[in-house]
Structures are given as C-alpha cells and as structure tokens.
Amino acid sequence: MTSFREIAINGLWKNNPGLVQLLGLCPLLGVSNSVVNALGMGLATAIVLAASNATVALIRTQVSDAVRLPVFVMIIAALTTCIELLMQAFTYELYQILGIFIPLITTNCIILGRAEAFAAKNTVAAASFDGLMMGTGFGLVLLAIGAVRELLGTGALFANMQLLFGPIAAHWQVTVFHNYPGFLLAILPPGAFLVLGLLIALKNRIDEIVAARAKAAEPAALPAQSRRVRVTGVIE
C-alpha cells in the first residue's frame, strides 16, 4: 500500500503524466493554446480519471484477467460519454472548440495505465485519490502550457472564460501587453512542443538542485551523529 502523501507527490511532481511519463500528449499539445481550453480539457480528464480508478478498484476482485482490459475500456468509455453529454448540455461552445479531443479521453494512455497499474491493485479510496492527483498533475501542466502560449501569442490571459464558467466570467480577461502584435508560433502546434520542452527542462533542473542540496546536507549530519555515539560510549 502506498501512502496518500506519496500518491500526491507522485501525481503532482515525481511521476507527473505530462512531464515525466509523457502520456496523453495528443490533448496536451492539441488544445493547450489558451487557458480556457486547457482548463476545460484538464477538468474533463481529471474527472474521468478519478471516477474510472474508483470504479475499477470497486470491481477489481469480480473481474477475471481474461476480460480485465475490455472491461476497463468500457468503464472509461461510459464515463467519457457522460462528460461529453454534460459538456454538450452546459458548455456547448467549449465542447465544439475541443472537438474530437473529448471523445479521445477514452483512449488516453494515462487513464487506462492508472486503471491497470494502480486501481486494479489498491483500495477504492487510494485509487480515487491516485486518479485525482494524476488528473490534477496533468491538468496543471495543461494549464501552464495554455497560459504561456496564450500570453505569448495574444498578450492576454483568461480570454473567453465565459465558455466554461458562464456569463459571470465574461470580463475576466487580463491584457498584459497592450498593443501587442501577437506571436503566431506560440499558438500553433510547434509552440506547444517548445513550451512543453521548456517545462520538462525546468522540472529536471529543479530536481537536480534539490538532489544536490540534499547530498550537500548529508556530510554535515554524519559528524554530529558520530560525536553522539562517542560521547555515549564514554559515559557507558
């Protein structure tokens, strides 16, 4: 059994689907040209991931190995259809923008991979939390890419947020660069690859710095421990 703290750290950082496993790159790169698109796709994926993990963990002892994968795919497809219908009902314009990427959640490697590797071997609570953390980690990467691409491409942030949150979000747009001519490459697919590469490089650099600091702190702790041992031996 993995602790909930380890599950959270793995999903958000150490084993992040977008930055480490490099899974689900099709929606990650295809719809991340704005914050609203990235947020809508991230929420849909996270909900399906958490719900499918919980369902798979609930029936894991009742399904034989011979039909395990087809059953998992059917569960994921049913949940994806539910999300698709909800988006058609409440966020239809955003659903049209995201297009084929919503149904393609069914074939997302992250969801099927977590169902097979984690949910099928753990409790409902742990599997649900794993799905939520993995989905959140994937969504945060989507959101970061979408924010950078929208800012560089248009000079603004949070445009068209009413597509997801309704009329209340119609005036949420923040113009960062006034009279900005725009940078077309940022909102085209090559821009997504460039931003993702920079985010992966940044994460690797942070991991290197943390590891170096941890290694540098080890020699300072060892002499203190050895002194305590010597003093204890003298007293005895």
Score class of each variant (00 low, 15 high):
Ile75Tyr: 03
Ser226Glu: 14
Phe129Tyr: 13
Arg60Gln: 09
Ala201Lys: 13
Val35Cys: 00
Gly24Ser: 08
Ala147Leu: 04
Val20Ile: 15
Phe101Tyr: 15
Ile7Glu: 09
Gly113Ala: 06
Leu188Thr: 12
Leu164Trp: 00
Val124Arg: 05
Thr154Lys: 04
Arg228Lys: 11
Met134Gly: 11
Gln21Arg: 15
Asn108His: 10
Arg230Asp: 05
Ala125Val: 14
Leu202Trp: 06
Pro27Asp: 05
Gln96Leu: 09
Ile7Leu: 11
Gln21Ser: 12
Arg228His: 09
Gln88Cys: 01
Pro70Gly: 01
Gly131Asp: 05
Trp172Met: 03
Ile59Leu: 06
Ala117Pro: 03
Ser52Ile: 10
Ile7Asn: 06
Val67His: 08
Ala51Asn: 03
Gly137Leu: 03
Asp207Glu: 08
Ile97Asn: 04
Leu143Asn: 03
Leu98Val: 05
Ala156Asp: 10
Phe72Ala: 03
Tyr92Trp: 08
Thr91Pro: 04
Leu85Ile: 13
Pro223His: 01
Leu28Gln: 13
Leu49Asp: 12
Ile105Thr: 11
Gly30Pro: 12
Cys109His: 09
Ile168Gly: 00
Gln21Cys: 10
Arg68Gly: 01
Pro167Arg: 01
Ala57His: 02
Leu86Met: 08
Leu142Cys: 12
Tyr180Ile: 07
Pro103His: 04
Glu116Arg: 04
Ile59Thr: 08
Glu93Gly: 00
Arg213Asp: 14
Asn204Gln: 12
Phe177Val: 11
Ala211Met: 12
Ile7Cys: 05
Gly166Lys: 01
Leu157Pro: 00
Leu86Asp: 02
Arg68Met: 11
Ile7Phe: 05
Leu29Lys: 05
Ala126Arg: 13
Pro70Leu: 00
Ala192Asn: 02
Gln173His: 02
Leu143Met: 06
Asn33Trp: 10
Gly113Gln: 07
Ala54Arg: 02
Ala212Gln: 15
Lys215Gln: 15
Phe165Gln: 00
Ile47Thr: 10
Ile168Asp: 02
Leu104Met: 15
Val67Arg: 09
Ile209Asn: 06
Ser226Trp: 13
Val174Ala: 05
Gly137Tyr: 04
Gln225Ile: 09
Asn108Tyr: 09
Phe101Thr: 14
Gly42Met: 06
Ile59Val: 11
Ser226Arg: 13
Leu202Ser: 10
Ala57Tyr: 01
Phe129Trp: 14
Phe72Glu: 12
Ala214Tyr: 11
Met74Phe: 14
Thr106Glu: 12
Gly18Ile: 10
Val48Lys: 02
Ala50Gly: 02
Glu218Ser: 05
Lys14Ile: 11
Ile209Trp: 07
Thr2Leu: 06
Ala216Lys: 15
Phe101Ile: 06
Met134His: 12
Leu86Thr: 05
Gly24Ile: 10
Asp130Gln: 02
Ile110Glu: 09
Ile9Met: 13
Thr45Phe: 07
Ser34Phe: 03
Arg60Thr: 03
Glu6Cys: 03
Trp13Glu: 03
Ile102Asp: 05
Ile145Lys: 08
Phe177Trp: 10
Ala115Gln: 09
Leu132Trp: 06
Leu151Lys: 07
Met134Phe: 15
Thr80Val: 11
Lys203Met: 08
Thr107Gly: 12
Leu58Gly: 04
Leu198Trp: 05
Leu184Tyr: 13
Ile102Cys: 04
Asp130Leu: 01
Ile209Gln: 12
Gly182Glu: 09
Leu143Ile: 02
Glu93Cys: 00
Ala126Ser: 10
Asp65Val: 08
Leu22Ser: 13
Asp207Trp: 00
Asp130Cys: 02
Thr175Val: 13
Gly135Asn: 06
Ile111Asp: 14
Leu185Glu: 08
